[in-house]
């Protein structure tokens, strides 16, 4: 295992920038977001987590999935999607696990070419957590604070250095060409393991394998849900999208766009002819919770929640996913 001086991280990222677009968490006026690093940007390395999950790097807020052009009475389709090589530095273990959840959806029956190409071409450098956020509950799902798989490199803050663990060949290659990495000692490794372990112990723990949802209580909580959509947009495992066609003003060229959608939106299930199978607010809330905690577990063998705590922090009605889980395990 290797380690890198904290002071050298920026230089290392600088080297990576020569070949890749490098994105890292940047704190701007208290809002931490993954940003493409420019010269003046200082990555934040002791942050809790980004406000919006980094799923958008793989499933963008909006993306063109098809172009079409009408010429001489013929319709021509344009299928092009270019994705460059990217490095996502500082992604938290919960969000890496979020991507592993999304992979299941993208690979089921039909391959989602846009998502999977981005996944393939993006190098993930994860940053394990040594200090839990107030609302974090990744320990419940084992999706943090440490990370076993899913990233190309895994960093752990051990004081003046980051311990660096290799997670893939791509990750190993990044290290081999760089002078900033030195051999880590046994003591370093032990220290990292201890810090991550201590971090875990500060978090709530519930045995998620025993989860059996209390639907009555969920409905009760759901009655306070404002269906504001914010949880679905910031969630690392919410993947629902809408598809819309858009024409240019001249009307001979257009594109098909997919953009994030929210199952909290009453129009989400509304069909032409005005039939809406999920017409009640509380039903939409219950569906979201069951989708994450039951349907995805039964379908893919993993929970659709990774315990990042974003929804808990942002919910305007202060509804807590952790509490729902706790009530389901008691």
């Amino acid at each position: 295992m290797k380690k890198i001086k904290k002071a050298d991280v920026k230089k290392f990222l600088g080297d990576l920038k020569k070949e890749h677009e490098v994105f890292a968490p940047v704190d701007e006026d208290g809002v931490v977001e993954f940003k493409r690093l420019s010269k003046k940007d200082e990555p934040t390395l002791d942050y809790v987590n980004s406000v919006v999950s980094p799923k958008g790097f793989f499933l963008p807020m909006k993306e063109k999935i098809l172009g079409f052009r009408e010429a001489n009475d013929k319709i021509e389709l344009i299928d092009e999607h270019e994705v460059g090589g990217r490095v996502l530095f500082g992604i938290r273990p919960c969000d890496v696990n979020g991507l592993l959840v999304l992979d299941n959806v993208a690979r089921e029956e039909y391959m989602d070419p846009y998502y999977l190409e981005r996944r393939q071409k993006t190098i993930l450098i994860a940053l394990e957590c040594v200090k839990p956020g107030v609302d974090c509950f990744c320990r419940v799902f084992g999706s943090g604070p440490g990370l076993e798989m899913g990233a190309d490199l895994v960093y752990t803050d051990i004081g003046d250095y980051f311990l660096v663990r290799v997670g893939s060949d791509k990750g190993a290659k990044l290290l081999s060409g760089s002078d900033y990495f030195v051999e880590a000692s046994d003591a370093d490794e032990k220290k990292a393991a201890k810090l991550v372990d201590e971090c875990a112990k500060k978090m709530s723990n519930v045995e998620s394998s025993k989860l059996k949802l209390d639907l009555e209580k969920i409905r009760d909580k759901g009655s306070w849900c404002l269906n504001c959509y914010s949880c679905t947009f910031i969630c690392p495992t919410c993947y629902c999208f809408d598809v819309v066609d858009r024409m240019n003003p001249k009307g001979c060229e257009g594109q098909r766009i997919r953009c994030w959608d929210s199952c909290m939106n009453p129009q989400f299930t509304l069909m032409a002819g005005n039939f809406n199978p999920r017409n009640k607010k509380v039903d939409r809330f219950v569906n979201r919770i069951r989708h994450k905690l039951e349907y995805m577990r039964d379908r893919y063998g993993v929970f659709g929640c990774v315990g990042c705590g974003r929804c808990v922090r942002e919910c305007p009605s202060h509804i807590s996913m952790l509490e729902i889980i706790q009530e389901g395990v008691r």
Binding site: C228, Y229, F233, C259, P316
Partner: peptide
């Protein structure tokens, strides 16, 4: 992020 939470709350 166009989540519309500002309108919904």
């Amino acid at each position: 992020i166009s989540c519309m939470a500002c309108r919904n709350v």
